[in-house]
Write a protein that binds this DNA or RNA. Structure first.
Lengths: 249, 249
DNA sequence: CCCAAAACTGACTGAATCGTCACTTTGTGA
DNA sequence: TCACAAAGTGACGATTCAGTCAGTTTTGGG
């Protein structure tokens, strides 16, 4: 896609300092602009967000924004999404790509918790993803929709080996690992959607998001891992469903 | 919201005929326009779809479209979504609102199958929902976002009693019924998203969508009802996870 | 302090597209 | 056949914004 090409041959005499003050200031300004874009885009959506408003909120002239993001607000959106996906990738790797012998159940719980927590404390980011990601991912511009597909694949690529392992070791039933990975991501995504759509009075400072994400993770993992059907034999006999539980495998 | 107000005092001499030929023709044209809107909006998204293009595809003048949809393409979008939600409501009621004593497991399977099948054979409708529903549902226009919330609530309202019953009878474990309802809907939605994003060569005529929806329903129901964890005692002992399975309830 | 380069600015231009309305075409009953 | 009503049309004015660029301000080395 388009990335602002920061010239990476630092024109300094002393190479010990990685970047000049100039460059650091430039990065700071860039972040200020992204911050403003994030607020405006979350509120209005990419289309109704105007560069004029972003520029005004960032306290820069419109022309200056173009100095930093030659492709305008769309480039800003992708810069924001880049960071989100990079964070999600890190969260996923932290939970699943470690060598330690942690049961899948515990990994999943920790993962879901971090994932939920990440977006719960940055709801505007999730709103942006919800509003724009699908619109672009299902849009007719090949290169843009590939961007989302490849980011999703990256996450699945981290999850899948862990799922395969858990299946190989017998901790999980043998399902298609890729589908399971997508289902896990889909459920986290779905829960966040539910959480945001409720939008209870915008979560006052009293709301404990950590508690909520722990609770939600427990709920999701309970169902995903153990199912919602009550498998106590008595019940199944009572309802004449004795054999039904077997058909999963 | 805004609905085109069709005057419902039929100015006919003979009331036996429910609507005049005039009125029938009008409805036909209306449908033609919606058909065109559906194609264009699915392809470009609401914003990039122009009324000129919709009018051209429908083979009507732009002014005529405004005769039928005074609020332009947005009204057309909502007319399309109205029908989708009405269909989904019917599908949901058919599976869950019947008096027959069918096990929840079977109801769920049938439901997921119909739901998936509905969108698989009208992928463009799902694309429209994906692209526009979130954008509007999370948008800043109260009245519009309420529209989606109330439609979702309608579906949940049908699912929830059935879930409550199944929990009361012991077929399902006691979880918050509303959350379970949302989770079910979210998973169907998530699967369709996955299905569409893969978008394998746009599903040639050889592809059997019925087979696919049956297979997908089986997968989803297997996990949602029985979980993905392998609960064979031997395995659990092998991994020292014997107690972990209890924490769900 | 001065000057040149870098950074910033916002009024302006042109493209896209919405919604209108004066006019044309079609249908119908006398 | 005519005359009037209903339906349809698309050129046009108004609006909204993205992106540009000539001019201003700031920076930093000499």
């Amino acid at each position: 896609m388009f990335r602002i090409s920061v010239p990476f041959d630092p024109p300094q005499e002393f190479m010990e300092q990685p970047v000049s003050r100039r460059e650091r200031e430039r990065q700071t300004r860039r972040l200020t602009m992204l911050e403003a874009a994030r607020v405006v885009i979350a509120e209005k959506g990419l289309k109704r967000a105007t560069l004029d408003e972003i520029a005004q909120r960032a306290e820069f002239g419109k022309g200056t924004i173009y100095n930093y993001f030659p492709n305008g607000k769309e480039e800003m959106l992708f810069a924001i999404l880049d960071e989100v996906y990079s964070d999600l990738h890190a969260i996923t790797e932290e939970a699943f790509a470690t060598a330690e012998a942690i049961p899948f159940r515990d990994r999943l719980r920790r993962y879901v918790e971090s994932f939920l927590s990440y977006f719960m404390r940055q709801r505007d980011l999730f709103v942006i993803v919800m509003k724009e990601a699908n619109r672009i991912a299902f849009g007719d511009e090949e290169s843009k929709s590939r961007y989302f597909k490849s980011n999703l694949d990256r996450l699945v690529g981290v999850l899948q080996p862990a799922i395969d392992d858990a299946m190989a070791s017998g901790e999980l039933k043998p399902f298609p690992a890729e589908s399971v990975a997508h289902m896990i991501l889909g459920n986290v995504h779905g829960y966040l959607r539910y959480y945001c759509v409720r939008g209870d009075a915008d979560a006052g400072p009293g709301t404990d998001m950590d508690a909520e994400s722990v609770c939600a993770a427990e709920f999701l993992c309970a169902i995903l891992l153990d199912g919602m059907a009550d498998t106590r034999t008595a019940t199944q006999i009572h309802h004449g469903l004795g054999g039904a539980a077997e058909e999963a495998s």
